[in-house]
C-alpha cells in the first residue's frame, strides 16, 4: 500500500505545476493541485554559481529588486532599519591585505547540512530532496532559533501585518522567511528571479548533479568557493572571483 501523503510530504515532494484556482465567493477560493509528473527527488541538487567578476553593482541591485518584485517583500510600512526583511542583499567586502574590493549578492546558501534545519524545534525549517531549503509557514512558531543558527544572516522575521501578498508566496507576521530559490518558478521549469535579472553569465542556475548542465560543467572548469566553507555545510550557492 502506498504511503498516504500528508501536508508536509506534499510540500516537500510535489511541485504544484498546475494549480487550478476557482473563486466561488469573495475571499473563498477552491484550489486544486495536479500531481506533478516530475516529482522532487534527490537525483537533483539545485544550485547557483555567482561569478562576481562578471557582476556589476547595478547587476546585484537588479537581483535584489527582482527578488522583491517576485516575492513581494520590501514594502513593509512599519518595520524600520534591521527589522525590514532582506531575502537577498548586496554586500561589499575589502581584503584586509590587498585592499581588493568585491561586491556580491548574499542570500540563503541552500546548504546540504543546513544549521537552520538542525535547530528548528518543529521541523518548520526543512530541506527538500532537491536541496532547496524552505520554511513551512504553517509549522513555524516564530522562535527565531534558525536566525541565530544561520551563518549567512539570510533569514528575516516578519515584524508586522502584511497586505497585498503575492499569491504564489504567502508570508505571515510572526514567522521566519528567506530565499526559496524561487521554487514556484523552478518547479515549472523556470529559473529564480534574481538569476533571470542578470544578463550574461554572472549567475548560472541549474542542477549541480547533472553532468550536462551548464553549472556543473562550469564548476568543473573554474575555481569556485563556498562562503564559510570551514563549516562543511556544502552550500548550493557557489561563488567565483572572491
Amino acid at each position: 500500500m502506498s504511503k498516504k501523503l500528508n501536508r508536509r510530504d506534499f510540500i516537500k515532494s510535489t511541485t504544484a505545476s498546475t494549480a487550478g484556482v476557482a473563486t466561488i465567493a469573495s475571499g473563498i477560493s477552491l484550489t486544486t493541485f495536479a500531481v506533478n509528473d516530475n516529482p522532487v527527488t534527490k537525483e537533483k541538487r539545485w544550485g547557483m554559481l555567482v561569478d562576481i567578476n562578471q557582476l556589476s553593482e547595478s547587476d546585484i541591485d537588479n537581483m535584489v529588486n527582482a527578488c522583491q518584485e517576485e516575492n513581494g517583500w520590501g514594502n513593509e510600512t512599519h518595520s524600520t532599519g534591521h527589522q525590514k526583511p532582506s531575502w537577498i542583499k548586496k554586500i561589499k567586502v575589502k581584503d584586509r591585505a590587498t585592499g581588493k574590493i568585491d561586491s556580491l549578492p548574499m542570500m540563503c546558501q541552500h546548504c546540504e547540512q543546513p544549521p537552520c534545519v538542525d535547530v528548528c524545534p518543529t521541523n518548520a525549517s526543512m530541506r527538500r530532496e532537491d536541496g532547496v531549503v524552505l520554511v513551512d509557514k504553517h509549522l513555524c512558531i516564530g522562535c527565531r532559533y534558525c536566525m541565530m543558527a544561520c551563518p549567512y544572516d539570510a533569514r528575516s522575521f516578519v515584524h508586522e501585518n502584511l497586505s497585498n501578498q503575492k499569491e504564489h508566496m504567502p508570508r505571515g507576521k510572526g514567522t521566519v522567511e528567506s530565499c526559496t530559490l524561487c521554487v514556484h518558478r523552478v518547479d515549472k521549469g523556470g529559473v529564480p528571479a534574481c538569476a533571470e535579472a542578470v544578463s550574461g553569465e554572472g549567475v548560472i542556475f541549474g542542477d549541480l548533479y547533472d553532468a550536462d548542465s551548464k553549472i556543473n560543467q562550469t564548476l568543473k572548469k573554474i575555481q569556485s568557493t563556498q562562503i564559510r566553507a570551514d563549516l562543511n555545510l556544502n552550500t548550493g550557492v557557489r561563488y567565483s572571483g572572491i
Binding site: K90, I91, K92, V93, K94, D95, R96, S103, M106
Partner: peptide
C-alpha cells in the same frame, strides 16, 4: 580576512 564595507557587518 576581509572587512565588510557595506550591506552587513
Amino acid at each position: 580576512g576581509k572587512e565588510i564595507l557595506e550591506g552587513y557587518g
